[in-house]
C-alpha cells in the first residue's frame, strides 16, 4: 500500500463515519437542536416555547415569516394581501441549476411563493401594514416579487394612512434577476419617500441576517430602525471586507450591538419584547 492509498482509505473511512454520525443525528434531530452559539443541546419543544430563543445564551434563532407574524400581531388579525404575485424567470437564468428549479426547491423548503409575506394586522388594536421577509426562501433575496409586494403594501399604507413595519431578513439582491432585482431597491425606496412626505410612520426591524440590497434600500431608511438582538446587519459581507482590507475583523463586527455603538440603529429589541415595543412606538407616533 502506498502512502497515497493509505490516505485515501483513511479519508473514505472518515467520510463513512461522518455519514453514520449524520444518520444518528437525524433521529435525535427530530427532538433536539444544537444551539449555534453556545452549542448546548436543546429540546426542540423548549426552544419553540421560548420563541426560538436559546434559554441558555439568549441566541435568537431565525424564524419564518408566518411565525414572526404570529408573534407580533393580535390573534387572527393578520390579513394577507397580494399573494397572487408570483415569481417568474425573466432572464432565463441558469447557473448550476435553473432559476425555476431553485424557486421550486425554495417553495418546498419554506412553503412560500417568494421571500416576503405582506398584509395588514392589528398590534394591540392598532391597525398596521406589515411586510415580513423569510430567509428560508432563497436566502430572503430581493427579486421583482419582493420589491413589488413591499411596494404595494406600503402604497396601501399610504392610501389608508396606516403606520407600516417591515421585518427584513435577507442576504441581498436576487442575482437570478440581475439588474431587475437592483431596480427593486429604487422602487421600494421611492415609495418610502412618499410615506415620508405623507408623514406616515415607517418602522424597519432588521433581523438575522440583513445584508446587501435590502440594507442599501428600504431596510435602513425607516423613521425608526430597530434590530433584533444578535442580528448580523451590513452592506458588504464579512468575507468580502476581510479580503478587501486584508485584515481580520472584530468578532462582533456587523452585529446589532456593534451597529448600535456606531449610531446606525435606534435600539435593539429581544424577541419577547418585540410586540410591546412596536405597539408603544405606534401609539406614541399616532396618538392625537
Amino acid at each position: 500500500m502506498t502512502l497515497t492509498d493509505w490516505f485515501n482509505k483513511r479519508k473514505m473511512q472518515q467520510i463513512a463515519a461522518r455519514d453514520n454520525d449524520v444518520h444518528i443525528d437525524d433521529s435525535i434531530g427530530k427532538l433536539w437542536t444544537l444551539c449555534y452559539n453556545c452549542s448546548s443541546q436543546l429540546p426542540k419543544k423548549d426552544l419553540e416555547n421560548n420563541l426560538m430563543v436559546c434559554p441558555n445564551c439568549d441566541y435568537h434563532f431565525r424564524i419564518g415569516a408566518r411565525q414572526r407574524i404570529d408573534l407580533i400581531s393580535d390573534k387572527d388579525s393578520f390579513c394577507e394581501m397580494y399573494q397572487e404575485i408570483k415569481p417568474c424567470d425573466p432572464l432565463n437564468f441558469v447557473d448550476t441549476q435553473s432559476y425555476p428549479s431553485r424557486q421550486e426547491a425554495a417553495h418546498a423548503k419554506s412553503g412560500l411563493d417568494d421571500a416576503v409575506v405582506v398584509g395588514t394586522c392589528t398590534i394591540e388594536g392598532q391597525k398596521t401594514a406589515i411586510a415580513v421577509m423569510d430567509f428560508e426562501y432563497m436566502g430572503g433575496s430581493m427579486g421583482s416579487v419582493v420589491g413589488e409586494k413591499i411596494t404595494r403594501i406600503l402604497e396601501y399604507a399610504l392610501l389608508n394612512k396606516l403606520p407600516s413595519i417591515v421585518f427584513t431578513a435577507s442576504g441581498g439582491a436576487r442575482m437570478q434577476e440581475s439588474a431587475l432585482s437592483l431596480m427593486q431597491m429604487a422602487k421600494t425606496s421611492c415609495i418610502v419617500a412618499k410615506l415620508n412626505e405623507a408623514k406616515l410612520l415607517y418602522i424597519t426591524v432588521l433581523t438575522e441576517p440583513t445584508f446587501g440590497g435590502v440594507t442599501a434600500s428600504f431596510g435602513t431608511i425607516g423613521d425608526i430602525i430597530i434590530a433584533e438582538k444578535g442580528a448580523r446587519i451590513g452592506f458588504a459581507g464579512r468575507r468580502v471586507i476581510e479580503q478587501t482590507i486584508r485584515q481580520k475583523l472584530p468578532a462582533d463586527f456587523q452585529t446589532a450591538e456593534y451597529l448600535l455603538k456606531c449610531g446606525q440603529i435606534d435600539f435593539i429589541v429581544e424577541r419577547k419584547d418585540m410586540k410591546e415595543k412596536l405597539s408603544k412606538l405606534i401609539y406614541l407616533h399616532t396618538k392625537k
Partner: peptide, 26 residues
C-alpha cells in the same frame, strides 16, 4: 461598487445609498 470596508460599514454604507435612492425620488 461602493467600497466594502470597515469604516464604510461603521458609518452606514447601506444607509447612505438608501437615503440617496429615497431623496433622488423627491
Amino acid at each position: 461598487g461602493a467600497y466594502p470596508g470597515m469604516m464604510a460599514e461603521e458609518t452606514g454604507q447601506g444607509e447612505a445609498i438608501a437615503t440617496n435612492l429615497k431623496e433622488m425620488a423627491k
